[in-house]
């Protein structure tokens, strides 16, 4: 009886360990999936509090909409360092506000950020907060947090394959992702459940749990389309279960792997109108 019990424990540990390895490999493939070395896109963020009407989810009031041009280029040996320029097109009152952001793969290397406000007339370096604590605040007032926008470091989490399911007519792995101790201290989430498309190595749905372990957000990646031979979710829906608010991020236009000059990913783009507009015109011709 005792031997059977030990065998059961060994088998359980072995199976769960092999599930963990498999889950980690799946997520590694997701992280390694080609998302283009460069990206230029016009992005629309629409946020509102919602209600249910019949079987539809509709905004309670006029949604808050931001439209922005985003230009990204990857750097570094693994193409995991990113330089991004974001220029707000709408609403009219925020038009022309520009952000420049450098993100680094290297752990603990803080993001560099600069902001240009036309009322201020100068570029100003900004700090986003302490990397060792959970960040609050949202991405341009949406339900997306800055943590939601960050790329994961594979070693920051442990992974468990919970099963296989069909979601959105696609065969999916269901994986539980739990931050390791160091990461947990600076995350807003205690864990997430991810539905990963088995063939396309893409996350299609995530449920995020807050630090108290309660369901907090659902994120859906939909309208998947091939852009320059790369699969891109053209819409991302973020549902905040605590506030009853929804954000829809939609690509109005997108082009990948076009040639973007390194000089465009510098502070010059924020202040030099002639340079910015002429380059943008050239890049946006690729849509």
């Amino acid at each position: 009886m005792k031997q059977a019990y030990i065998l059961f424990i060994v088998l359980t540990v072995f199976i769960s360990s092999s599930h963990a390895n498999e889950a980690r490999d799946i997520i590694q493939k997701v992280l390694d999936r080609d998302d283009g070395t460069t990206e230029i896109g016009r992005v629309k963020l629409s946020t509102c509090a919602v209600i249910k009407k019949g079987n539809k989810i509709v905004c309670k009031s006029t949604p808050r909409i931001k439209i922005m041009d985003m230009i990204r280029k990857d750097y570094g040996p693994n193409e995991k360092d990113h330089k991004t320029v974001t220029i707000i097109m709408e609403p009219a009152g925020e038009k022309g506000i520009g952000f420049l952001q450098y993100d680094y793969e290297q752990k603990n290397k803080e993001t560099d950020q600069w902001l240009y406000l036309s009322a201020l007339g100068k570029v100003k370096r900004i700090v986003s907060g302490n990397e060792n604590e959970p960040k609050t605040g949202s991405f341009f007032g949406s339900e997306l947090s800055y943590e939601d926008m960050e790329k994961r470091h594979i070693d920051d989490y442990t992974y468990q394959l919970l099963g296989r399911e069909t979601y959105a007519k696609r065969p999916c792995f269901v994986i539980e992702t739990v931050p390791v101790k160091d990461r947990a201290a600076k995350s807003n989430y205690s864990k997430s459940l991810d539905w990963v498309d088995q063939e396309r190595n893409m996350i299609l749905k995530s449920i995020l749990f807050n630090r108290q372990g309660k369901k907090y957000k659902k994120i859906y990646f939909g309208k998947i389309k091939e852009v320059n031979s790369i699969l891109v979710p053209m819409q991302i829906a973020v549902l905040n279960l605590e506030t009853g608010r929804r954000t829809l991020l939609s690509y109005v236009n997108i082009a990948l792997n076009i040639n973007i000059d390194d000089a465009f990913l510098t502070q010059r783009t924020l202040t030099d109108g002639a340079f910015r507009e002429s380059r943008l015109k050239k890049y946006q011709a690729a849509y």
Binding site: K44, S46, A49, V50, I51, K52, N55, K56, I57, V58, C59, I67, Y167, A168, K205, K215, K218, Y220, G222, K223, M234, Q235, A237, L239, L241, E242, T243, G244, R246, L248, S250, Y251, V252
Partner: peptide, 27 residues
């Protein structure tokens, strides 16, 4: 602000993205 957990009990992509799909094109 009203808080609701039960609002988002659907996984139907057509419902989740329905309202904005048309707007995204016109924008």
């Amino acid at each position: 602000l009203s808080h609701s957990q039960s609002l988002f009990d659907t996984d139907d992509e057509d419902i989740l993205f329905e309202e904005e799909a048309a707007a995204a094109v016109s924008d």
